[in-house]
Design a protein around this nucleic acid. Sequence first.
DNA 1: GCGATCAGTT
DNA 2: CACAACTGATCGC
Length: 455
Amino acid sequence: MDTDITGDAETDLPPPVSDDLDDNGFPILPPTAAATSSFADDFYRSGIDWSSLQLQAAPPHQRNPAAGTKAKCGGPLVQRSLFQAWGIEKPPREEAAQGVRAAAGVSSSSASHSGTWSGRKRRWGGDSEENGVAKKPATCPFYKKIPGTPFTVDAFRYGAVEGCSAYFLSHFHYDHYGGLTKKWCHGPIYCTALTARLVKMLLSINSEYICPLELNTEYVIDGVTVTLLEANHCPGAALIHFRLSDGKTYLHTGDFRASKSMQSHPLLQTGRINLLYLDTTYCNPKYKFPPQEDVIDFVVRTAQRYLKKQPKTLIVVGAYSIGKENVYLAISQALEVPIYTDASRRRILHSFGWPDLSKRISSCDQSSPLHVMPLASVQHEKLTKYLETLNQRFLAVLAFRPTGWTFSEAAGKELDLIKPSSRGRVTIYGVPYSEHSSFTELRDFLKFVRPQKGL
DNA sequence: GCGATCAGTT
DNA sequence: CACAACTGATCGC
């Protein structure tokens, strides 16, 4: 039977569901006596879209009712191994530990997000609740709230969040802005200027709610000092650094790709992060991928090679709405050709305000051998049709899918071992170009940041 | 018609 | 395969 996680925040213990252990041995809901309010419990109970995680302090202290409240009892954080941090002994199977993902592709619903962990479907969030609990959007999960502040991050699908007077948006990807519509009226939205432009342009949010912030600049918002840092994820993506009036410092990474250069930021060098909200998409050593520059270099060399053999080759790069720009920008620069893409993407790319990108964008598909398309279009059948469309201007297609995760061991370490898939005149390369941190990058970042070491 | 949610896709 | 980030279909009003 379904339980309602949308219930009031005061509901400490939702009634147990039928199958209450997932494949990894996590309690879906604490079996009665399980007084353990472990991180995993809270995590699982809080629903959906794990957009960022809070690495909580060591001892699973006294059960903390209302997982979502700001009564975060400020327990110190100790970062141990990533697995230990969530009480995962050892991944029983391969997919075991991968999970602690932020922002799983789990949609807004309050249902079945455990799919990412176990592949088993489960429902536990029916809105139509029997016992008279008013139906409302799923409650904002605890890990999207910043304790001790009236802030949430990437929490737009819960209507007005109680106690929230400022809503932060880490970056403009659907799984993070989901819920934002032109009817938004629950409070100011803080984000980078670039993200702000996209929010306004594509979601028609009323300007009065949009509050752009410059990177690397301190703002005092509701008594909290807030600084946005470059996240190295997609254009406009930011890490959010909070300094509370009591001196506590929190870092919310959103989605990010950790890098050495990040470590030179003054705010991260103080060693004074009390609480870390981490993007752990690839929180498993099995995910390896090379530095972005290496992948870009590989893509460029490959494109050049194909063009040499067949000058009438069309190069296609797949991309989501935003992200992966550097892949096609690099090709454009190396081959000295413009970038063609459709009108809607042109509008988005121009809105970045990046002259080096804007000046290379073309609106004529015949004039450029470099086309950017939605990832979903980068498949043999669609590209074959597309090629016909272009009417003899091109004789072959070389396409890249920057996928971000590596299935083949090979691609992780030796790019030149990547085998393309060819059908007829269409060749497709999956390349491990990631805009999330790899496991080792995550580990190095944690070692550097050392959330609350020694308190 | 619109938003919210679910299912499906690469 | 598994993953992020959609996209489209269906539901409820």
